[in-house]
């Protein structure tokens, strides 16, 4: 097993064994259920597709929130406990440390997302939904979650404190979500740039309505790539300090 997968497996097991993992999972699943009952199912008669679209909208928001506590500990926590030294003195590359941690946290986030499958199953019992819509929605949620974790791991690399890392992630996510509002008040060509960079608005919209556009997949993978690369550079720069 390569060092990358060793780190990813240890990270996943650490989250599964920690109270934080259980608390995050319990809160997200409870909130998913509540929102499904009140928002997706509530408000009169609806088509199954509308219910599913609303469900994915709520799920995406909760996934973004869940990525904050999951990512804050990835590097800042290691530094606080002094265990980062173990990784830094091992014959592994810095990018393997970052990717290992990223994939470990992503595996947990995907597991958590898939645990909500019983909610769309309830729609299937009482209505009719397309498998394609379901797959597109979950794919979009996981891509969005991956992008949020990448932003989170970058913040975690910047700070020694997990709390500060969490605030940095929350601030960055909020700013990137609100880019679509900034786009509304800026002029061309900046409005297009901000609209493209907005984390949720246009890029997630296609997934939640059951469509997959390569442009949106590329966007989320680019966000992951950019922030994971930046986190690696931050980790490398720490060897000089």
């Amino acid at each position: 097993m390569t060092a990358l997968w060793l780190i990813a497996r240890r990270e996943l097991m650490a989250i599964l064994r920690s109270p934080l993992g259980f608390v995050v999972a319990a809160l997200v699943l409870a909130a998913d259920g509540l929102l499904f009952h009140t928002r997706a199912l509530g408000g009169g008669e609806k088509y199954s597709t509308e219910v599913l679209t609303q469900f994915f909208f709520d799920l995406s928001g909760l996934t973004m929130i869940a990525s904050i506590p999951l990512s804050m500990r990835l590097l800042a926590g290691e530094r606080q406990r002094g265990t980062l030294t173990l990784l830094l003195t091992s014959p592994i590359k810095d990018y393997q440390i970052i990717l290992g941690k990223f994939f470990g946290a992503l595996a947990f986030l995907c597991l958590l997302t898939l645990l909500t499958l019983y909610l769309p199953a309830l729609i299937v019992i009482h209505g009719k939904i397309s498998i394609g819509h379901l797959c597109a929605g979950y794919l979009g949620t996981m891509l969005l979650g991956a992008a949020c974790l990448a932003i989170g791991i970058f913040s975690s690399a910047l700070s020694k404190s997990q709390i500060i890392a969490a605030f940095l992630t929350a601030f960055a996510l909020m700013a990137m979500v609100l880019f679509w509002l900034v786009a509304k008040v800026t002029e061309a060509p900046l409005d297009d740039v901000f609209m493209y960079l907005a984390l949720h608005n246009i890029h997630f919209e296609t997934f939640r309505t059951g469509k997959i556009h390569l442009r949106d997949v590329v966007y989320y993978l680019s966000v992951c790539g950019f922030f994971l690369f930046a986190a690696t550079r931050v980790l490398e720069s720490r060897r000089w300090r």
């Binding site: 097993m1 060092a3 060793l6 780190i7 240890r10 097991m13 650490a14 064994r17 920690s18 406990r81 002094g82 265990t83 980062l84 030294t85 173990l86 990784l87 091992s90 014959p91 592994i92």
Partner: peptide, 21 residues
């Protein structure tokens, strides 16, 4: 000591051995 408290001694040493190839 750079050790992960939630791991067993054996699990941790196996992890360290894996990192060190």
């Amino acid at each position: 000591p750079p050790v992960y408290g939630e791991m067993t001694v054996e699990g941790f040493l196996a992890f360290a051995a894996g990192l060190r190839r």
